[in-house]
Amino acid sequence: TLFEALYDYEARTEDDLSFHKGEKFQILNSSEGDWWEVRSLTTGETGYIPSPYLAPV
């Protein structure tokens, strides 16, 4: 399942991933609570992002 960003987000740590509203992601790991490890389909980068900022496509 692909997810889309509902809002912009600016990374706060080196493990976070900055992204823009509308960017699409592949979920790599969603078992860590509200922070999911994802791969951006736009940039190819991986990192953690807050799951409340995402919605299924």
Rank of each mutant, 00 (worst) to 15 (best):
T1G: 12
T1H: 11
L2C: 09
L2E: 07
L2R: 04
F3P: 00
F3Y: 15
F3R: 03
E4K: 06
E4V: 14
E4S: 05
A5C: 04
A5V: 04
A5W: 01
A5P: 01
L6A: 04
L6M: 09
Y7L: 10
Y7G: 07
Y7Q: 09
Y7D: 08
D8M: 02
D8N: 08
D8L: 02
Y9H: 07
Y9E: 01
Y9S: 04
Y9Q: 03
Y9W: 09
E10S: 10
A11L: 02
A11R: 09
A11G: 12
A11M: 04
A11T: 05
R12T: 14
T13S: 12
T13E: 09
T13Y: 15
E14P: 13
E14H: 12
E14S: 13
D15H: 15
D15F: 15
D15C: 15
D15L: 13
D16Q: 15
D16V: 15
L17R: 03
L17Y: 06
L17E: 01
S18A: 07
S18V: 04
S18P: 05
S18D: 04
F19V: 07
F19P: 00
F19Y: 05
H20M: 11
H20E: 08
H20Q: 12
K21Q: 08
K21W: 04
G22T: 02
G22H: 05
G22E: 02
G22R: 02
E23C: 06
E23D: 15
K24E: 05
F25R: 00
F25E: 00
F25H: 00
Q26T: 10
I27N: 01
I27F: 10
I27V: 14
I27G: 01
I27C: 06
I27A: 04
L28H: 01
N29W: 06
N29E: 07
N29F: 06
N29M: 06
N29A: 08
S30P: 07
S30A: 13
S30E: 09
S30G: 09
S31M: 10
S31A: 11
S31G: 11
E32R: 15
G33T: 13
G33M: 10
D34F: 15
D34Y: 15
D34K: 08
W35I: 13
W35Q: 07
W35F: 10
W35T: 08
W35A: 06
W35Y: 11
W36Y: 07
W36Q: 02
W36V: 09
W36A: 02
E37Y: 15
E37Q: 13
E37A: 08
V38H: 00
V38R: 00
V38S: 01
V38A: 10
V38D: 00
V38N: 00
R39F: 07
R39G: 01
R39L: 11
S40P: 00
S40W: 02
L41G: 01
L41S: 03
L41A: 05
L41M: 12
L41I: 11
T42N: 12
T42R: 13
T42C: 12
T43E: 01
T43M: 01
G44Q: 06
E45Q: 14
E45P: 00
E45T: 09
T46C: 08
T46A: 07
T46W: 08
T46D: 03
G47D: 00
G47L: 05
G47T: 03
G47K: 03
Y48W: 15
Y48V: 08
Y48T: 08
I49W: 00
I49N: 00
I49H: 00
I49L: 06
P50L: 12
P50S: 09
P50W: 15
P50V: 03
P50Y: 15
P50T: 05
P50K: 13
P50C: 14
S51I: 06
P52G: 15
P52M: 15
P52C: 15
Y53W: 09
Y53G: 08
L54V: 11
L54T: 04
L54D: 03
A55Q: 13
A55E: 10
A55H: 11
A55N: 08
A55P: 05
P56N: 06
P56L: 08
P56K: 07
V57S: 07
V57K: 03
V57C: 08
